[in-house]
């Protein structure tokens, strides 16, 4: 059984459903399609948690806490607190949620994921300071806890930093 929080290296790739807590001189990276990259961070302590959220709600199902929006956010908050962050200082940024196959229809998982994550922030009283969502392209993202900056690369576009 794998741990719910990834063991971090200087550069940690966060896969689907995984969570990494990163600190000074470390970065968390991921490639996102319709999933949401959720970053919670305490800028003063240079600490951040990155989750690669796959689906909006667990519905009570077991599984990695990072897989669902409703389990990832409380888990990240607790992991940050354990790592020394002040929960009252924690802010959030989110990215991802694209529709790479440009499919129409009512099942738009990227948007549902983003809405579910925002609802969790509201419930936990976490301020969402920036977001970069939607579109039809994938994203390669890198979070730097030293600066609290999230770098977002979409193919053929300028790098966006939020």
């Amino acid at each position: 059984m794998t741990s719910a929080v990834l063991a971090v290296e200087r550069e940690t790739n966060v896969g689907m459903g995984q969570i990494a807590v990163v600190g000074r001189d470390q970065v968390a990276r991921s490639v996102l399609g319709s999933c949401i990259g959720v970053v919670l961070y305490d800028e003063r302590r240079c600490l951040g948690a990155f989750a690669h959220v796959v689906l909006p709600a667990s519905g009570g199902r077991a599984g990695s806490p990072g897989k669902f929006a409703d389990t990832a956010v409380p888990f990240m908050l607790e992991a940050l607190r354990k790592a020394g962050a002040d929960p009252k200082s924690v802010l959030a940024k989110i990215t991802g949620g694209s529709n790479m196959f440009s499919a129409d229809g009512p099942f738009q998982i990227g948007k549902q994921n983003a809405d579910a994550v925002r609802a969790q922030f509201k419930a936990a009283n976490i301020r969402l300071v920036a977001e970069h969502l939607g579109g039809t392209s994938g994203r390669r993202v890198t979070f730097h806890p030293d600066t609290a900056l999230l770098e977002i690369e979409c193919v053929g576009q300028q790098v966006v930093v939020i």
Binding site: V31, G33, S34, V54, L55, S98, I109, G138, R139, V155
Partner: peptide
């Protein structure tokens, strides 16, 4: 498309 393969595979397994 020209894009990240991991993103496309991620969406396909969703």
């Amino acid at each position: 498309v020209r894009d990240y393969a991991a993103g496309a595979l991620e969406q396909a397994v969703m």
